[in-house]
């Protein structure tokens, strides 16, 4: 991309160009401030006492920094009747996300490998059917899934939620790996077959070593999706098995007692921390997943 703003256009004086440049920075800075404001407000509110929140300014820095709200949010805040903070639900989310991410990524890798490299008749139709599954509004499967989880005996359990996330994550994980493996020449697989290597041998020693970037993209995508999920979490969990997003919503909307905004904010940050961390550490892969997940092709 050529640089349009600094390229000399006829009749533009130095002063005008400088002015344009500064307005550009001001506009960009304005958006930066807007995007950071909610995070800033969340952090500062979580560090204030309730007294200071009532008397002070929304965007003011805390006069006195206190971590009380954080301790309460982690282990004392009430979700309905229980008052154990978000801690148990945070671990529920971990227990749900880790196996669900691992299984859906592994199965997606094998699926993508089959669809891209072992093209048999009908493979593309199967792929298209799976792809379409990514797009359905999940409301359309909630009712039957609730019944099937009951029949399987895993209604309201962590295993049930893992199962649901794996099933509805497969479309995306398959898509990611398929689109990655389709760029690897099929001749490679054919040559390996001629040399006597089998299905798993080829996957294990040729494709897997090439797959690190797409594994990272898929794991990050799935982790963000599953960690941030609310619909499945609220529909298919029960008192002890709720994920952290559901617990957060219960804390914020619990009607008993004084509204503790600082605790709400601390709990929200705790719930957001894992995915934020992933974004900060591996933002590049996160964005790649987003664009791959949205711009199909």
């Amino acid at each position: 991309m050529t640089d349009l703003a600094t390229s000399p256009t006829r009749g533009q004086s130095q002063a005008v160009r400088l002015l344009l440049r500064w307005s550009l920075y001001i506009a960009l800075g304005f958006f930066v401030a807007i995007y950071l404001m909610p995070l800033f407000v969340m952090v500062t509110t979580s560090l204030k006492s309730l007294e200071e929140i009532r008397t002070g300014d929304l965007v003011a820095l805390p006069r006195e920094v206190t971590f009380d709200a954080w301790f309460t949010a982690w282990s004392g805040a009430c979700t309905g009747i229980k008052c154990e903070g978000v801690q148990p639900y945070f671990w529920n989310s971990v227990l749900i996300a880790v196996p669900a991410v691992a299984i859906s990524t592994l199965v997606g890798a094998i699926n993508g490998y089959v669809v891209a490299q072992w093209r048999f008749r009908g493979a593309n139709i199967i792929f298209a059917l799976m792809l379409f599954g990514c797009f359905i509004p999940f409301q359309v499967v909630l009712l039957p899934m609730a019944r099937v989880l009951g029949i399987m005996g895993i209604a309201g359990t962590i295993q049930g939620l893992i199962f649901v996330h794996v099933v509805y994550g497969l479309g995306f994980t398959t898509l990611f790996f398929r689109n990655y493996y389709v760029t690897i020449p099929i001749e490679l697989t054919k040559a390996a077959k001629v040399d006597g290597a089998g299905f798993f041998r080829i996957f294990w020693s040729i494709f897997l070593p090439l797959s690190l970037p797409i594994i990272v993209v898929t794991v990050i995508w799935q982790f963000t999706q599953i960690w941030n999920d609310f619909l499945f979490g609220v529909s298919f969990s029960q008192a002890g098995t709720q994920p952290v997003t559901v617990a957060l919503n219960n804390i914020v909307n619990s009607t008993t007692g004084v509204k503790e905004y600082n605790v709400d904010m601390a709990a929200a940050i705790i719930a957001a921390l894992p995915t934020l961390l992933v974004y900060v550490v591996a933002g590049k892969y996160f964005i790649r997943g987003l664009t791959a997940g949205s711009v199909k092709g």
Partner: peptide, 12 residues
């Protein structure tokens, strides 16, 4: 900075 909200849960 423009993109980080995308990493957050809608509940957050």
């Amino acid at each position: 900075i423009y993109l980080y909200p995308m990493a957050l849960s809608m509940i957050v």
